[in-house]
Write a protein that binds this DNA or RNA. Sequence first.
DNA 1: CGAAACATTTTGACAGTGTCAAGATGTGAT
DNA 2: ATCACATCTTGACACTGTCAAAATGTTTCG
Lengths: 215, 215
Amino acid sequence: MTYSEKTNYHHGDLRAALLDATDKIINRDGLELFSLRACAREAGVSHNAPAHHFADLRGLLTAYATNAFDLLIDSMEYAKKSRSADPAEQLLATGEGYIQFALTHPGKFQVMFRNEKLDAKHMELQNSSAKAFGILEHAMTNWLELYHPIALTDEKKLKYILMAWSVCHGYATLAGERKLDFISGFNQGTNHHIDFGKLLLNTFIQSITYSNTTI
Amino acid sequence: MTYSEKTNYHHGDLRAALLDATDKIINRDGLELFSLRACAREAGVSHNAPAHHFADLRGLLTAYATNAFDLLIDSMEYAKKSRSADPAEQLLATGEGYIQFALTHPGKFQVMFRNEKLDAKHMELQNSSAKAFGILEHAMTNWLELYHPIALTDEKKLKYILMAWSVCHGYATLAGERKLDFISGFNQGTNHHIDFGKLLLNTFIQSITYSNTTI
DNA sequence: CGAAACATTTTGACAGTGTCAAGATGTGAT
DNA sequence: ATCACATCTTGACACTGTCAAAATGTTTCG
């Protein structure tokens, strides 16, 4: 039994407790009010206790973002399960899972896509984010095989993948950063944002579907 | 001749100098290294000199973002001028101007869309951002009138506007936050990002164009 | 069993931050 | 010339991330 497997050392498993505290603070107070010392305070340890588990602030948030990417993967996989095997349905579900996650966990989503807060070189983060990307890539690849008659170059395939990702990510970002609030007559509740995002995504996929023979 | 019109008071026009310093620091060191005190230092004044011109840090960045929105407007208007009056061309140009601006001025773009750094209640910011949105709205409205045969409800019209905005904003954000770096074989230069974004946007507009009779 | 080796946490310090209060200084009007 | 006022400086405070050193708990091994 090694150290990392034990559950009752000085604090128990402080690493996990700090990540929990991080989540609590970010959800309660927002990312801008999060600090290493606030995190330590929340976990009930001294201000420098995190140093042994994370190299620095970015190290902690990198681990937090890694976990968040795994949750994003879960969200997309979960959405896919409730749909038929039709690649268009699967692609739609993947994007819906993305939007659903982003707007349900705005704090996590912020950290995941704020480059300066992360250590992009970190392997586990790269693995988790690459895996998340792979799900979208896979869904689009399957869609293209069935709905796009002409074989595509890698660049054109990538264009479709990034187009779909951009739609999801752009809408999620704009809604999450409250940049749609000023639009009159547009319901600003989180659930409505999610619903509207799905509507928007659905229209997007229909568009590329019904135009697939011409471009 | 009022105070604000004078050019040689204690410092000259410190307000403008501070905004210049802000721009210099954000472009040189990045937003994460920007601070009020660094800004004052850059402008050659004491650490608390900005207080008389801006209520606080958010106040300064709000003014900075307001100017940036005006530059975004210029970028979109400029792109539109070089195209034909065809609404599809104009819509394309609008989006291209958006992407061009976002990737040419990543620091400004970051500030503009980081809600916690801004005072969203500020009137001038609201005006400038609403005007920028209006350009996109106008371009899409013109496009819909010509290319979409059926009259749309406000909600469906908004869906199209937000879809186009999301494509531009999502791609610009992902590229700007370096979230596309890991894609193998994908050139990471800023100019290539811009070119690819325009390609992507062009495909998007073609898609909605060629599918307009069916959905 | 005990002592050494080690992982973990605490304490203290330092330079940096935003913001507040108070004082100093330059400018325009009367 | 004096006064009101805009502008800027100085000093202080609590907060931040990170470093170094000390203290404490746990494991290992003789």
